[in-house]
Amino acid sequence: MPLVLPPSVLGFYLLLAFSPRHGVGQWLHDTFDLQLVFSFKGLVLASVIYSMPFMIGPIKSALQQLPKSFSDASYTLGYTEWQTFVNVLLPNIKASVWTAAILTFAHTLGEFGVVLMIGGNIPGVTRVASIAVYDSVENMDYHSANVYSLILFSITFVMVIAVFIFNKYKAKSPLE
């Protein structure tokens, strides 16, 4: 669902779920003194929920492309499913894992709807770069918006280049 839901809708439901007045949010607040709404921790957790499919999709696809005989061979040598995953499957999709991790991070860095809903826009606490860009434009401060945008653009550009260099052009597409 996080893949197809509008970020603001997902953010709204997470805001309700994390609310310290009821449900899971109340339990977390009462048991662990953990407040997720309008906090950086909540913002990170919401971003993880939102971005998880972007990580899982390419990794699942990479695993499915490995021949089944890899795991079968490992089982006949006496290794469990977990040992096979760690020793055989994971090392052979390393490039896909790195690619997915870097692109998911870059994607999360620019996330707007979910983080605004959960974190609000508290300077020094939950104001992230993408929100700062919006905030600057709202205040007609185009210079700051330009600086923030340039920083975000540079970071994501470097990441995409890094992915291609890391894969040494082996991947057929950036998400493979």
């Binding site: 021949p67 890899f70 079968d72 061979a73 006949t76 052979n92």
Partner: peptide, 11 residues
């Protein structure tokens, strides 16, 4: 088990 496609691990 010797697999027809060898099933050698690329890593």
């Amino acid at each position: 088990f010797v697999f027809q496609d060898y099933a050698l691990f690329p890593n």
